[in-house]
């Protein structure tokens, strides 16, 4: 869960980002440091067609790729359009903004500070995931997912 003292920012690009752009942006952001949690958000790109008449057929998609963020391989499961960040403190915000300015050369983006991750699990979360759900990810992704979060080693 989130704590009131940790600031959050949301980065929304003008267009859905290609994997190369996501990789460049994330590496610039990660280099700034001071990041606690990241959510890469966007419409989902499943590996297998999940429903409809072609259900079960493989779904090759050029936007679903494995990228490298901070030396760690990340398999994209969405076409990234929004990036949510939770930071250790506010002093990182201008540096993150500068990293975004450097990354977005061909399109504009919006940068907002605010609350974008859940602060408390809801009763629905409790009903869906039970009392032992990982509180670090409830509200940002499915805690029941087998894949779990990707941990990017810090520079500390």
């Amino acid at each position: 869960m989130t704590y009131a003292e940790y600031p959050q920012v949301r980065i929304v690009s003008e267009r859905l980002m290609n994997p190369e752009t996501t990789e460049r942006l994330m590496n610039l952001i990660i280099a700034v440091g001071g990041i606690r949690r990241v959510v890469l958000n966007g419409p989902r790109l499943p590996a297998v067609i999940p429903y409809g008449p072609a259900r079960g057929i493989e779904n090759p998609h050029v936007m679903r790729r494995t990228i490298r963020i901070g030396g760690q391989e990340v398999e994209l499961q969405v076409h990234v359009g929004n990036v949510l960040l939770e930071l250790e403190n506010e002093e990182y915000i201008p540096k993150i903004k500068a990293a975004c300015d450097e990354a977005f050369t061909t399109m504009s983006y919006s940068f907002k500070e605010g609350r974008f991750m859940k602060t408390e699990p809801t009763i629905v979360d409790f009903a869906k995931y039970g009392p032992d759900a990982d509180k670090a990810i409830v509200g940002i992704t499915d805690p029941g997912s087998r894949s779990g979060p990707i941990i990017i080693q810090g520079t500390k």
Partner: peptide, 8 residues
């Protein structure tokens, strides 16, 4: 997809 942002 009709109401989503276009891709790059």
């Amino acid at each position: 997809g009709h109401s989503l942002r276009l891709d790059e």
